[in-house]
Each structure stands twice: as structure tokens, then as C-alpha cells.
Design a protein around this nucleic acid. Structure first.
Length: 171
DNA sequence: AACACGATTTCG
DNA sequence: GAAATCGTGTTT
């Protein structure tokens, strides 16, 4: 029987949380009550005020506000006018960090991922610790993984664009 | 009030 | 390799 990940899991540094989310089960409850479970296979870490690839590095705004709060809440935003990105806030309060959910076993790509799950702006701020429609269940094993530079953030410049903060579960 | 721009995906 | 497409932050 799986246990839901609790606040202390998310409250750690994003570089500890991102790789440990790999292999865990993302559970989503549809509006009709149907429950679906997906294995998380790919994540990316965005780390605070210094990381120029992290939206929060440009300041505290209505959009990035949730990243400054407690860990475990979702940070949702629209990119290229088409795709919703799903992130979970990490770290202690006032330290803006988040993990981008980049892939599941059933689907690769963050935009397709949110479309499959049916999550959008309505999930902004959703608490994965208390929500009854989305959460993450802990699976005992911790799979081997590989790392690499993050995708699509070359504009962030050195050294941020080269940080190996993308985590992929080995198949 | 107007403008520039992206943590992507898809198609040719 | 380029288009699609719109919320957000910044500038007027």
C-alpha cells in the first residue's frame, strides 16, 4: 500500500526532491471520479533567486508568488500561449524553488503531460499534500537515473544553462 | 494601452 | 527549421 508524500518531502532543497520524484506515482482523479496513476520518469529543478532560468529570479510577482510559499503546492503557467507547465514548489518558505514535471511513463514532454492529466490554471496553488484530485504516492524503491542540462533555457546564460539539473529515470 | 517574448510541440 | 498563440511583465 502506497503512502502519499508529505510536506517534509517537498520542503527539502529542490536538488534533493527532483531526483527522488523519479519512479514515484503521480495520481490524478478525473472529474468523473476515475483515478489514474502514472510513473514519473523525468523532472527538472529550478532553483531560486540566483538561477536565471527560474522564473522567480526575476522577482516576486502574482504569477511566481506561489513559489515563495511552502513546498508541495503546484506552480502552473502557460508557455508559448499553448501549453500548461506543471511544477511543484520545493524548499522552505521564502526560498523560491520548483520541480518541472517533464515526463511520465505514458508520455514525454511537459506540454503533453498536462494535456493528458487535464490540469491547467485551475490547479495553480493546488496542495499535493491535501488535495483530493491530485497527489503523489511514495514507492519504496529508488530507481537509477541520469542527469543532463535543462531544456530550452539557453537564454539564462552561464552557468545556469549548463547546470545538470534535468533528471531522467533509467529504463 | 501596447508590446515583446517564452522551462514546447508538431509538421514539413 | 519554423509556426502556433496568449498570459505576464515591462514600457508608454
Amino acid at each position: 500500500m502506497s503512502e502519499r508524500l508529505q510536506r517534509d518531502f517537498y520542503s527539502r532543497d529542490v536538488l534533493e526532491v527532483a531526483p527522488r520524484l523519479l519512479g514515484q506515482h503521480l495520481v490524478k482523479v478525473a472529474s468523473d471520479g476515475t483515478r489514474s496513476s502514472y510513473v514519473i520518469t523525468e523532472t527538472e529543478a529550478y532553483r531560486g533567486g540566483e538561477d536565471l532560468a527560474c522564473h522567480a529570479s526575476k522577482g516576486r510577482t502574482p504569477r511566481t508568488e506561489v513559489m515563495f510559499g511552502e513546498g508541495g503546492h503546484l506552480y502552473m503557467y502557460l508557455i508559448y500561449g499553448m501549453y500548461w507547465m506543471m511544477n511543484v514548489v520545493c524548499g522552505p518558505e521564502d526560498v523560491p524553488q520548483a520541480v518541472l514535471f517533464r515526463g511520465l511513463q505514458e508520455v514525454s514532454g511537459p506540454g503533453r503531460l498536462t494535456r493528458l492529466l487535464g490540469v491547467d490554471r485551475g490547479f495553480y496553488g493546488e496542495d499535493l499534500v491535501r488535495s483530493d484530485r491530485i497527489w503523489i504516492e511514495e514507492i519504496g524503491s529508488s530507481p537509477a537515473y541520469s542527469t543532463g542540462p535543462r531544456i530550452g533555457i539557453d537564454y539564462a546564460g552561464e552557468p545556469w544553462k549548463d547546470m545538470p539539473w534535468r533528471f531522467l529515470m533509467n529504463l
